[in-house]
């Protein structure tokens, strides 16, 4: 879902393709130097790149509150969390680089709109309770998708996921902890907590991508084990897990049709507004322009630093060569 709506390339059917698919079916890991179909490579670059960009853009809505964190401990925890996200971005860019694309190329593609990031980060964080909601709901949804990806067919991606998942569960716990404090706090804090859930509930459900019946790229990605579960399976699992947590917090999920279904053993719930989702994906979410502007500014303002560091490293290298 950090990589929602990833367009997958069509597979061809040569002898080599069939042998490749058999390796995947035997649950062998594909490694960077192994032969792979071009479609597999391109789809993975898109998916891992989008996932990496989501980590980096995802720093912004939380970074928005680091300077206003209410206590030293909350500030330290939030700093550690956002730092982890930058680290996740780094592992993921490295995993994508093994497929023959550079981090700089991917960054340029993010900035000029050729690559996407998760729609969730185009929603604003307006109160401190949003730091709780992001950890609880957004990281909760991310974990739902990432745990199965630890078994994905591409080795470097699967291994990056193992490291990331360990840290994500800490993030979710700290988010829930903030929500708990808010939900048990003053009237104003409770209001903030409910408001955060109201604003983040449906955007969190959108994180899993469109309904399976409208998800055109899923089948090939699932055959390649790049995608391990369908969008609807994961969304249902998320709702089933999250609703009791909201009840525990004494908060109301903003869905009047939400109810437990004895027959299916799952909650029935209202689908998010998919036209809003498509708007956000097209660039019309509340924060799309601000997020890209922030990333562009960091990239442009930092150009002289990157160039300076490279120039110095080159001088050092030349001096070492001359001394030999």
């Amino acid at each position: 879902m950090y990589a929602q709506l990833v367009k997958s390339e069509a597979a061809e059917e040569t002898e080599q393709d069939r042998a490749f698919q058999e390796r995947i079916d035997r649950k062998e890991k594909i490694e960077p130097k192994d032969w792979m179909p071009e479609g597999y490579r391109k789809t993975l670059i898109r998916q891992i790149g989008q996932h990496a960009h989501s980590e980096i853009v995802g720093q912004l809505p939380e970074g928005n509150w680091i300077t206003r964190a209410p206590t030293l401990e909350r500030k330290a925890i939030l700093l550690a969390k956002v730092q982890d996200e930058a680290g996740h971005g780094l592992y993921l860019y490295c995993a994508a680089e093994t497929l023959g694309i550079s981090r700089d190329e991917m960054t340029e593609m993010l900035l000029d709109g050729r690559m996407k990031y998760s729609s969730i980060f185009n929603y604003p964080t307006l109160t401190w309770a949003d730091m709780g909601a992001v950890g609880w709901l957004v990281d909760g949804a991310a974990i739902m998708n990432q745990v199965p990806l630890q078994r994905t067919s591409y080795g470097p991606y699967a291994r990056a996921m193992v490291r990331i998942c360990k840290e994500e569960s800490f993030h979710q716990r700290q988010g829930f902890d903030i929500m708990m404090k808010m939900a048990q706090g003053t009237t104003a804090q409770k209001k903030m907590a409910q408001d955060a859930l109201d604003r983040f509930w449906f955007p969190s459900l959108m994180m899993f991508g469109p309904s399976d019946k409208d998800s055109v790229h899923s089948a090939q990605s699932m055959a390649w084990k790049i995608k391990m579960n369908t969008n609807d399976e994961l969304r249902q699992k998320f709702v089933d897990q999250t609703v009791p947590q909201a009840e525990y917090l004494g908060l109301t999920v903003p869905d009047p049709d939400l109810r437990w279904n004895e027959e299916t053993g799952h909650y029935d719930f209202t689908e998010p507004d998919w036209s809003e989702f498509m708007d956000v994906i097209k660039g019309n979410g509340p924060c799309n322009a601000d997020r890209i502007e922030a990333r562009k500014k960091a990239w442009d303002d930092g150009a002289w630093v990157r160039e300076g560091l490279m120039a110095h490293a080159e001088k050092r290298r030349a001096a070492r060569v001359a001394a030999q």
Binding site: I56, Q59, L60, G63, I66, T67, K75, A76, L79, A80, V82, Q83, A86, G87, G89, L90, Y93, R103, A294, K297, A298, D301, G302, A303, V305, R306
Partner: peptide, 22 residues
């Protein structure tokens, strides 16, 4: 230093600044 979060010239610097702030 925490004001730099998400705005550093490179990912490695972002991480290092956050780490120092922490």
């Amino acid at each position: 230093l925490s004001e730099w979060c998400g705005q550093a010239p490179a990912l490695e610097e972002d991480i290092a600044l956050a780490n120092t702030a922490l």
